[in-house]
Amino acid sequence: MTLLRWPKRPEDRFTALVRPHLRLLHRMAYRWTQHGDEAEDLVQDVLTRLFPRVAELEKVDKLGPWLVRVLYRRFVDLYRRNANSPIDDNAEPSADDALFDQRMTGECEQLEKLILQRELNRALFSIDSGWRDVVLLHDVEGYAVLEVAEILDLNVGTVKSRLHRARKKLRLALEAGTKTVPETC
């Protein structure tokens, strides 16, 4: 006798699919929102919208980048599309200095690195958001140019051009920024 397999519950299928990617989604959501609680809310919102589409998710070849793409679009919908509205106080996030400040307790070398990274992060949130998105995905998270193009729905040439311009801006910002290292170092 052949045992027929009862189809797995949608919640089990959904959990098995997305759970391995949740920390990636949280990290990306944080990169864009610069706020831990908002990052979790954004991930929750995306998952709620995706749960009814579990059958579609099962057919996706590379689910990680696909989920990041969905997350990015939702972030744009929730944060950027409303940023220009006079009656909505949503706006582009500002750099999360607190994350760096609370970690500055280690060795001098580590301290100097954190100070430079805080400056870089500030610089990232001072440049055009389109340039920032490319840097966050390519230079921070390590996605290939082609993947960045797919996630952001841009052509490869635009990604490369934005990367080049953004890096130039960041280099200038790092040269001009205040990089005060404590005297004890």
């Binding site: 949608p10 919640e11 959904f14 959990t15 997305v18 759970r19 949740l22 979790e40 991930v43 929750q44 998952l47 709620t48 919208r49 995706l50 749960f51 009814p52 579990v54």
Partner: peptide, 12 residues
């Protein structure tokens, strides 16, 4: 938290 919340809020 996020999985339970998503599943609770929407069912196929």
């Amino acid at each position: 938290r996020v999985l339970d919340g998503a599943i609770r809020q929407s069912r196929p």
